[in-house]
């Protein structure tokens, strides 16, 4: 296993000295997980592996933009994998660099302590996900794994749009309350 702090240290080692051993450790931990995550959405193993490899190459390229006060390593890697999945699966020749400014660039004056969810918080989120109802989890998992909008999810589950919206709002409300209580 790789703790959040260890993973952050490894990314910083890439940034400061192009540390290939650090990259190899990150790759062995995260590439199989990213691949499994992508396969869950129905993507074939070969394409999922391509997404995983390209995501880890992006971790190398963008290592200097990682900020452990903004996001945990795995959260940052998730955003990279999400964007790679969009690039590779939609094959949209997007003319614009798909850098996620909201993740790499903290707006001026943003209080770093308040920028939530740094460090080990993903373990807390994992815990909180376990506390959601099955109805709520189904929607959240479909969104993340299958890359579907709430409108598409409602159609697939044969549920009214309003029902899906209220499940999402309840689930996210619980996450927000729990995490804000942790912070204060």
């Amino acid at each position: 296993m790789l703790s959040a702090d260890e993973a952050a240290d490894l990314i910083e080692a890439i940034a400061s000295r192009q540390d290939r051993a650090a990259f190899a450790t990150l790759f062995r931990h995260f590439a199989p997980r990213v691949k499994a995550f992508i396969i869950r959405g129905g993507t074939d193993a070969e394409t999922a592996q391509e997404v995983a490899q390209e995501s880890l190459v992006m971790v190398w390229r963008k290592a200097a933009s990682f900020d452990r006060l903004r996001a945990s390593a795995v959260t940052w890697i998730y955003t990279i994998a999400r964007n790679k999945r969009i690039d590779l699966l939609r094959r949209s020749a997007r003319p614009i660099d798909t850098e996620d400014w909201l993740v790499v660039y903290a707006p001026e004056g943003e209080d770093a302590d308040k920028s939530v969810l740094a460090g080990q918080t993903y373990t807390r989120v994992k815990e909180l996900l376990g506390g959601l109802s099955e109805d709520q989890l189904v929607v959240i998992r479909k969104a993340f794994f299958e890359d579907k909008t709430h409108t598409v999810i409602a159609a697939e589950l044969k549920l009214p749009l309003g029902t899906v919206k209220s499940r999402i709002r309840l689930a996210l409300g619980r996450l927000r309350e729990a995490l804000e209580k942790d912070e204060s």
Partner: peptide, 25 residues
């Protein structure tokens, strides 16, 4: 809304961390 997205990205991170992993070549 930015903080809400931070939380949601952390959900994505937690789902990746929770994977057993699919072997790579």
């Amino acid at each position: 809304s930015r903080r809400a997205l931070d939380r949601l990205n952390a959900v994505g991170g937690a789902l990746i961390e929770g994977e057993a992993g699919a072997a790579l070549d």
